[in-house]
Every structure is written in C-alpha cells, then in structure tokens.
Design a binder for these strands. Structure first.
Lengths: 154, 154
DNA sequence: ATTAATAAGAAATTAAATTTCAAATTAATA
DNA sequence: TATTAATTTGAAATTTAATTTCTTATTAAT
C-alpha cells in the first residue's frame, strides 16, 4: 500500500489526537468527510493503524517511579529466550521489553511502579525468579523528557 | 480524585481500545451509557486521561530499525541539560528521551529509523551536533517483545 | 432514622458516522 | 493527444452514537 499526502496527514493527525471527529479530520486534511472516513478505514484494514488507546497519567495513578532494567541471561538459546518472554509478558508493571545488542544485558525492560518497595518486590519476587536470569542492572528515570511521541511519517 | 472500580475498569479498557463506543464501554463495566460517559469526561477533566492516539505500525511505514542511544554530557549543569532537551525534542525520530541514573550515560533515547544510512545521518548530523554531547553508545533492538503496553491500574 | 448530597438510568435531543449514488478526477490505452 | 476505463470525490439521506435533561435510586452524613 502506498500512501499519498492525505494518508500521511491522517496518520500524523490521528497519532496526535485519536479522538478527533471524522468531520474535523476531513477539514484539516482538506477532504470531505466521506472520502476521509474511507481512507481511515482503509488504513485500519491495511494494518497501518493497529489500534487506538487512551493515554493515562502514571503519576495520577500513583505510579511515580519508572525504571529501566537490563537483564542478562545465562544461555543464549531460543528456548531460554522464549521462556523468558512468555514469563515477562505476564507482569503488568513491564511496559516494554526489548531484546537488544550492544550491551552486557540481553533484554531491556521499562517498568513503572509505585515506590521502592514495589520495585524491590518486582525485582526479587518476579523478575529474578524467571529461569535463566543471571544479571540485573537497574537505572531509575529522573525525568521523562519525551514520552508518547508519535512515529515520524516518512 | 479517588477511583472506584468503575473508573479503574474504564481506564483499563480505554487503554486497550480507545475507540470503543460509549455504549459498549458502559455495557462492559456494568453501567448505563449516561453515567459511563460522565465518568469518562470526569477522568479526562481530572487529567487522568491525557489524550487518545492512534497506534501506527512502524514497519509498514518502512521504519524497520529501532535503536537505543545512550548519551553522555560533558557538564552536568541545568543549562546543559535544558539546552540538550530543547534540541532533542525537535528531532522527530526520537520517540523517547529519558534522563537516567545508574549508567555511564545521562540520557537514553529511543529512536526509529528506516535503515543504517538514516541512523548514521541521525547520529552524525543531528545528535552529536548538540552542544555538550561527548559520548554516544548505541544498542540496536532485535525484537520488540512488549510494545505499547498499558499502565497497570493499581 | 432522617436528611442531604451524589450518582444512576430512561428518554429526548443533538451530533456524528456511515451509506448511497451521481459527478469529477485520474490513469491507462490506442 | 484523444478516448475509455477505473478510481475517487462530494452532496445528501440514513443510521447510529453521543449528549443532555430530568426523575429515581443510592450512598453518605448527621
């Protein structure tokens, strides 16, 4: 699927405001509502738009701590990795889990927790309990300079 | 503002599906549409819901590379940091920018780019051009095990 | 237990999404 | 370059959902 300027504008706007009405969206990109809606549906159908979500303020939920946790595994086998990944997705505090190169760590996790007690519990009773996890290195986030940024539309 | 089970259910559902109709949402949480809508509006008003966004597939946009870039600064002064932050927010490829502890780096960036050429250009012509940036260490993301997860509702 | 305050639900209204179809634009072919 | 086919647009009608209003019920406080 190739995108013209209308499609790109739609993606750009919907990443910023996923609740904009179709009429307002149509006006912003310079089309009438009917074709605008068709394009949005087509982008959803094509899998370019994978969903919509509300953005929630972590601090107002009491989730004031964010940490990055580097994880080292004992063996670099597909089985070890697969097992780790199926375990880690069940922990709701883990917002992100990336398999990475260029570090001592194999995985980098981003977690949000209420406080140090919760962090300790998460680390000692959940993460280090997963088979194969040998090393853990945590960085705490002091400031979130850019969050929830939108993808650049090429 | 304190949240009851209805509010928590709303936040949980809207983080998963920000496009659900108010009627369907009301049914899922076990309320009629009118009070359900009132609660959603109240959560928006209170700043618990900060917005809505469409989720876009990076690969389908041709953004096939994701990298984590650790940044070290020469001086740890508020002015240096402020300048870096105002510069970094203008780079659309930077999806996330965190000021962190526990690493050699001061900042950790998450970037998405098309390919190695774009990465090279981003690094050499944009990031390292910012005043005070002395060290850069890049990790490439091999696999995105968990992405765009939703906050756990306490 | 009684009152006040808050929240819920039904129904009416308003607004938006969706569909339909004729007109226009774009792309392809001769 | 003219002609045809395919695709896309936009106006209007229809359907659906959001929003408001008002009465009833529930919860909290005295």
């Amino acid at each position: 699927m190739k995108l013209d300027r209308f499609d790109k504008a739609i993606l750009d706007i919907l990443q910023t405001d996923g609740h904009i009405s179709n009429q307002a969206l149509a006006e912003q990109i310079g089309l009438s509502p009917a074709p605008c809606l068709r394009r949005v549906k087509a982008l959803e159908q094509a899998g370019l738009i994978t969903g919509y979500q509300a953005l929630v303020d972590a601090k107002k939920l009491g989730l004031t701590l964010m940490a990055l946790i580097g994880i080292s595994m004992d063996q670099h086998t597909p089985e070890r990795f697969a097992n780790f990944e199926t375990s880690i997705v069940t922990i709701p505090e883990v917002l992100e889990c990336l398999l990475i190169t260029g570090q001592q760590s194999d995985y980098l996790l981003k977690v949000v927790i209420r406080d140090m007690d919760d962090y300790q519990h998460l680390l000692l009773h959940k993460i280090t309990k997963i088979a194969g996890v040998t090393g853990v290195h945590t960085s705490f986030v002091l400031r979130n300079v850019i969050a929830r940024a939108r993808l650049p539309i090429p």
